[in-house]
């Protein structure tokens, strides 16, 4: 109903008042639960893997089982039970606070929405390799592609998908290569280019590809967009955080890396008095 003073066109919002439009599916009570046309209880439960449903819900496309198995392997690669990793550390701090498991795990997942590590860099990783492929197809050499990217960072080898903090080399790349071979995936154009870039990076800077670079190239070959990949991997670090939470939560409270007052270095203003 129009208010008596209404002069603005609010049709877009009026159309959506008290009404939900879904391109995904939903629960039709008494009939079933549907996701992108699949009857979840009859077509999916017991028929496909959880990871296939995760990808279906995130992208709208049902992947083949082997691709979902590869995605699952990535989740294992990013769920380490080591509380020194930043997001896991948060899970552990939740444990020492006796936070709920869900809160601690979700807090850690939120932390991995970071521009330095975790899920978010995949957006930039895919943007880089797709952009590199365009440049390569336009005739630029691998050397030129690397130089253009490094020039954005004062010549330093900062390319999303290459090098990593803490260590040199990435054992997860070989693990994922192995599973890709086992599942029968061949290397596509993006992955071949990613390895050519790595070869140049190794020679020039002694820095290799990391899991982000590998995953970005592999999934670009599988025609995924960066936002689709980001959505699928939204909880990719989940399990490692829960592990670290559980380990600490089962110990006495406040015993995870407790700090004495003098364990914190104060660098601020000296003591002063309010006037």
């Amino acid at each position: 109903m129009l208010s008596k003073n209404k002069v603005v066109d609010t049709a877009l919002w009026d159309k959506n008042r008290n009404k939900i439009y879904s391109k995904k599916g939903g629960w039709i009570i008494g009939k079933g639960v549907f996701s992108h046309g699949y009857d979840m209880m009859n077509d999916l439960v017991g028929e496909v893997s959880y990871m296939q449903v995760m990808i279906l819900n995130a992208t709208g496309r049902m992947p083949e089982r082997r691709l979902a198995d590869w995605f699952e392997a990535v989740h294992i690669c990013l769920s380490w039970p080591d509380p020194r990793i930043w997001c896991n550390h948060i899970g552990a701090l939740g444990g020492t606070m006796q936070t709920s498991t869900v809160a601690a795990t979700v807090a850690g997942i939120l932390a991995n929405d970071s521009r330095s590590y975790g899920t978010r860099p995949i957006l930039e990783g895919i943007a880089f390799i797709k952009g590199a492929m365009v440049k390569f197809n336009q005739g630029l050499s691998v050397k030129e592609i690397v130089e253009i990217e490094c020039s954005k960072h004062g010549g330093k080898p900062y390319i999303m998908g290459y090098a990593r903090p803490i260590a040199k080399g990435d054992e997860r790349v070989l693990a994922l290569e192995k599973i890709a071979d086992k599942l029968g995936f061949s290397r596509g154009d993006h992955l071949r280019l990613a390895y050519d870039i790595e070869a140049y990076m190794l020679e020039k800077f002694d820095e290799g590809i990391n899991i982000n670079g590998y995953v970005a190239a592999f999934l670009s070959d599988c025609q995924f967009s960066s936002s689709e990949v980001y959505r699928v991997f939204s909880v990719v670090v989940n399990s490692g955080i829960t592990a670290c939470f559980a380990d600490v939560c089962d110990r006495p409270a406040d015993t995870f890396l407790p700090l004495r007052c003098d364990d914190v270095l104060y660098e601020g203003k000296t003591a002063r008095v309010l006037s």
Partner: peptide, 20 residues
């Protein structure tokens, strides 16, 4: 490179520091 992952020589602080 990926079989022989090596630790970087990054130097991390011994302590948390704050000006607050």
């Amino acid at each position: 490179k990926h079989q022989q992952v090596k630790k970087r020589d990054e130097v991390f602080s011994d302590k948390i520091s704050t000006r607050i």
